[in-house]
């Protein structure tokens, strides 16, 4: 994380030069390009169905109409709840596991760790299609609630617990990586001082490492929150219908045959809202989290 620890927010005072007008013009042009889809989502979702007319697509709505949000919410609310139920525990658990793993790998090097670590990291790059078929069978084979006759009433498949487990497991590599890089920068002397005081593995973690881990946790939580919230393939293959997350439901809404674009755009807006809020509120950390995802930044 050497590069990422350089603060991105430093502003150095400019000296006015003629070429700067060009720079601002280019930046504003890009800005407009990036905001174009946002403009479209917002104006379309505030229109009524009658007003969603191809010829007036780019025009502002005549009046603010919240009907499409109500419609989209009606459809997506249960899935929104599912996504929250999934993302909160999955993020928390994978952050805790990542912190412990990172601590072990950064400060308790043992033989073989150099081989183990890249083998762990590989897990975050694989296409999930490559594990999907056996995963479905595996989840089905783990029974949570058996029937009296020995058959299974509730397995991990089609169940929020299965989804949480899967997201935790496939989140371990990235959370471990981020914490490991974070803890590597903690001077060994700090821990050695603690060790002299007689603290063991847990003591050092609890009294020295954990208290300075907050920034690491923020990065990991933001990263995992957005990744899990935005995930789609697992949502559509292993969640069944009762645990279906919001991305799968939005896709389904958008595939509906009589296309009500205003409702779709409102649905897209609702789906994007939580991660956008996280991003706007904690953007600085978000950037760090992103860069940590590229191993060295």
């Amino acid at each position: 994380m050497a590069a990422t620890s350089v603060p991105l927010g430093t502003t150095r005072r400019p000296a006015i030069k003629p070429g700067r007008i060009l720079i601002y013009a280019l930046l504003i042009l890009f800005l407009l390009l990036f905001l174009l889809p946002v403009y479209m989502v917002i104006i379309t979702s505030f229109k009524s169905f009658q007003e969603v007319d191809l010829s007036r697509m780019w025009q502002l709505p005549v009046s603010l109409n919240f009907e499409s949000f109500a419609r989209a919410w009606e459809v997506l609310a249960p899935n929104f709840a599912n996504s929250l139920l999934l993302v909160v525990p999955a993020t928390a658990i994978s952050a805790i596991i990542g912190s412990l793993n990172g601590y072990v790998l950064a400060k308790w090097r043992f033989p073989g760790a150099n081989i183990l670590f890249p083998l762990m990291l590989f897990g975050m790059f694989i296409p999930y299609q490559a594990i999907l078929i056996p995963l479905v069978q595996f989840l089905n084979s783990v029974c949570l609630v058996p029937n009296a006759d020995g058959t299974c009433s509730t397995s991990l498949y089609g169940n929020i617990f299965g989804l949480i487990l899967v997201h935790v497991v496939y989140g371990i590599p990235i959370t471990t990586l981020i914490f490991r890089n974070y803890y590597t920068e903690v001077p060994d002397e700090m821990l050695e001082a603690g060790a002299i005081d007689g603290s063991g593995f847990w003591g050092l973690y609890w009294y020295i490492v954990l208290p300075i881990s907050l920034p690491g946790f923020v990065v990991v939580i933001i990263w995992q929150f957005t990744q899990i919230w935005n995930e789609f393939l697992f949502g559509v293959t292993i969640a069944g219908s009762s645990a279906q997350p919001i991305t799968a439901a939005l896709q389904n809404l958008s595939g509906s045959q009589i296309v009500e674009w205003n409702v779709q755009m409102a649905g897209a807006f609702l789906t994007a809202l939580p991660t956008l809020l996280v991003y706007i509120l904690l953007g600085r950390f978000f950037i760090r989290g992103l860069l940590a995802g590229s191993i060295k930044g």
Partner: peptide
């Protein structure tokens, strides 16, 4: 969603496989 069940059949199939 998906006319003639094109997507529904994929979802159903994974659910049947998942028990």
């Amino acid at each position: 969603a998906g006319g003639s069940g094109v997507n529904a059949q994929a979802v159903l199939s994974s659910r049947m496989q998942g028990g």
